[in-house]
């Protein structure tokens, strides 16, 4: 097998470079420009417009107390016969989905009293607790009707929500849920699959978390250790692989609801 030394030596030799320890810093001829509106409301409006263009649904709420009832309303209204609802083991996609709803156990969602509202409405909330078995958790997530997460950030330009497997660090001032975990280790109650396996995804976003473009976000990410997974999610899962015909909800959620606070 080729060793790292041999592999790199060959590349260096081809390039006529002598093997060197650190790469030279990349300094583009011009820095990326600051672009787009700055105001919170303008960013929120733009985010909503862009997300709606790609089949996402935005629910605006003005008060934290409205969050839980909005979630319940979304769950109760979610379409019944959606291809996205088909579960493993239910090959027609016509079977019924349980009343389980999975959610992150995360400070981003703590203050809204979501569990109580869900239970009252006949839904069964599930979250990962430290010490739980990961595989068993994923199996439950797979059977759930919906996943509820909090956004770490959002990008207005493309209607994108940003979700980390642990909180993102590096915020300049206003970001909620930032900094405490410094990306390493401790924050555990989230789960990548919560935003991925259930057919419906509900994400909570605060206006002040929205930036205009991805460059701002990448700069923020570069300031702190990266979580093990960070995703940009823009609208529901889609494919045009069957005769160019657009289908929604191929592997990921078929419905994306963002509650904008």
């Amino acid at each position: 097998m080729t060793t790292e030394q041999d592999f790199l030596a060959r590349v260096a030799e081809k390039l006529g470079r002598s093997p060197e320890s650190a790469p030279p810093p990349f300094r583009p001829s011009e820095p990326l420009p600051a672009i787009g509106p700055r105001g919170k409301d303008a960013l929120a409006d733009r985010f909503q417009m862009e997300l709606e263009k790609i089949n996402g649904v935005v629910h605006r709420v003005n008060d934290a107390s409205e969050v839980a009832p909005t979630i319940v309303r979304i769950l109760n209204e979610a379409p019944a016969a959606d291809p996205g609802k088909s579960r493993a083991g239910d090959q027609d996609g016509a079977g019924t989905v349980g009343r389980t709803v999975v959610r992150w156990a995360d400070p981003l969602l703590d203050e809204f009293d979501i569990d109580r509202a869900l239970e009252q409405a006949g839904w069964q909330p599930v979250a990962f607790r430290q010490g739980d078995d990961g595989r068993a958790f994923v199996a439950r997530v797979e059977q759930a009707h919906a996943g509820i997460v909090g956004c770490d950030a959002a990008i207005a330009e493309t209607g994108t929500i940003v979700l980390g497997s642990s909180p993102l660090g590096g915020a300049e001032g206003n970001g909620r849920g930032s900094g405490d975990a410094r990306g390493n280790g401790s924050a555990g109650g989230r789960g990548r699959t919560v935003s991925l396996l259930p057919p419906v995804l509900i994400a909570l976003l605060r206006k002040e978390q929205i930036v205009f473009d991805s460059a701002q976000l990448f700069r923020r990410l570069a300031r702190a250790p990266m979580p093990s997974q960070v995703i940009f999610k823009s609208g529901p899962s889609r494919s045009s692989d069957i005769e160019n015909d657009l289908t929604i909800g191929v592997h990921g959620p078929g419905a994306l609801h963002v509650i904008l606070l």
Binding site: E50, I54, T160, G185, G188, R190, S228, Q229
Partner: peptide, 30 residues
């Protein structure tokens, strides 16, 4: 303008995380 998913993976699952791969291998190919 953007695809539905842009996924950034920095290492395997970390302690305390419920899911994600416990092992991550990267093969650089010439």
């Amino acid at each position: 303008k953007i695809t539905t998913y842009f996924n950034m993976i920095t290492g395997p699952r970390r302690p305390g995380e419920p899911d994600g791969p416990e092992e991550l291998h990267v093969i650089f190919l010439d």
